[in-house]
Write a protein that binds this DNA or RNA. Structure first.
Lengths: 181, 181
DNA sequence: CGTATGTGTCTCAGGGCTAAGATTTCTTCG
DNA sequence: CGAAGAAATCTTAGCCCTGAGACACATACG
C-alpha cells in the first residue's frame, strides 16, 4: 500500500536494512548478502530497543547495567544474594565489568558486599531493603514499557519470534569457538 | 526429544531466558512476564552476536564502530563520501560518537576529512585507497562469519525471522516518542 | 607441610558512547 | 546589509565496557 515494493520479497516492507542490501547489490553484486537480512536487522532492532530501555531506566536514576544486576539478584529469591561470578554469567559481562557495576550499586546503597566465611575469595552482592524496593518498582514498569514496544506484534508472532531468537542464540553460541565441541 | 519439556510450550527448548521467566513466576507470580520471551531473547542474542562480531572484526585491527563507518562509505558508492550527519543516521549513533569514530579512522589513514566548498559547516569523510581495500577485504569475511552464525536456521526460518525483526523494529520505533505521532 | 596450580575478584590502561553546550557557518527576513 | 535563528560539527565531562594481569585464597599432591 505504502511506498514501492520492488522485487518478489513482499513480506518485508522496505526498511533501512532493505536499502542497505540494495546498496550492496549495486556496489558488490558478486556477494551474497542474505545474512544481513537477519543479522543487520537484529543489530538495528537491538540498538533501538536499547535506546528506549536506557531512557526508561534512566528516569529511575538507574543505568541498564545496574538494573541488570538488581533483577538478577531479585529473581534469585531470598536472601537476594549472588557471587560476582554468577552475576557475570547471568549478565553476559566480564568480571571487570561486574566489579564496576557492583561498585556503583554499593555506592548508591542498593546492594552490599559480603565475603563468604568458608571461601574468602568469594564476594556476595546482596540487595538492601532500598535495592529490593527499587527493583520491584522499576521492573514492573519495565514490563509495561516492553509490552508497549511489542504492541504491533500479534501473540502468535511473538511466540514465533521468541522461538526463532532462541534458536538463533543457540546457533551463534555453538559457532563461537570451533575448537570446543 | 531432548531434555525435559515442561508445560505446553514445546516450541522453545529450555534456554537461559526460559529459566529467567520461571524465576520470575516463582518470585513475582502476579506479573505477566511474557514480553521477556521476545525482548530478553533479543537482548541476549544480540550480546552474543556482538561478542562474536567484535572478535572477528578485531582480528583485522578494526573496531565494530569503525567498521560500521567504513561499510557505510563503501556501500554509498564512488566517491565513497558521506557527511558526518549521514554517518550518524546510518549508524544510529550520536553526532559526538561520529566525531570520535572519524577521528580514529582518520588517524589510521582509512578515511580523510574534506570540507564542502559550498557549505563550509559540512565535513565529508571519504575512504582512502587503504580504507577501500580494507573494507572490501573485511566485509567479505564478515559475511562468511555471519553465514556460519546462521547455520542452524533454515532459509525459511531466516526469512521469517527477518520479517518479524523488521516488524519489531518498526513497532519499537513507533512507540518511541508518544508526543510525536 | 609446602609448592604448584586453579579460582574468584579487583586494578589498570585504553576504548567507546552520550547529553549538553560551544563554535562556525548558512539562511531568512526586516 | 545586519541581526536572529537554524544547522552541522566538535568539545567537554562523565559513565560504561573489555583484556590482561595482579592479588588473595583454596586445593592437590608429593
Amino acid at each position: 500500500m505504502l511506498g514501492k515494493n520492488p522485487g518478489k520479497n513482499g513480506a518485508v516492507r522496505k526498511d533501512a536494512v532493505a536499502s542497505i542490501i540494495e546498496d550492496w547489490a549495486r556496489e558488490r553484486p558478486e556477494l551474497d548478502t542474505s545474512p544481513l537480512e537477519v543479522l543487520a536487522r537484529l543489530h538495528r532492532t537491538f540498538l533501538r530497543y536499547n535506546n528506549r530501555l536506557t531512557s526508561a531506566i534512566d528516569e529511575h536514576g538507574l543505568a541498564v547495567a545496574g538494573f541488570d544486576v538488581l533483577t538478577a539478584l531479585r529473581r534469585a529469591g531470598a536472601p537476594y544474594r549472588l557471587t560476582a561470578g554468577q552475576l557475570a554469567d547471568s549478565g553476559l559481562v566480564s568480571s571487570a565489568g561486574v566489579t564496576l557495576r557492583i561498585d556503583r550499586l554499593e555506592k548508591d546503597g542498593l546492594i552490599v558486599r559480603e565475603r563468604d566465611a568458608d571461601d574468602r575469595r568469594v564476594v556476595y552482592s546482596r540487595l538492601t531493603d532500598a535495592g529490593l524496593a527499587k527493583v520491584d518498582e522499576v521492573f514492573a514498569e519495565h514490563l509495561e514499557n516492553e509490552r508497549r514496544m511489542l504492541a504491533a506484534l500479534s501473540p502468535a508472532e511473538c511466540r514465533q519470534l521468541a522461538r526463532l531468537l532462541s534458536k538463533l542464540e543457540r546457533s551463534i553460541e555453538e559457532t563461537a569457538v570451533p575448537d570446543e565441541g
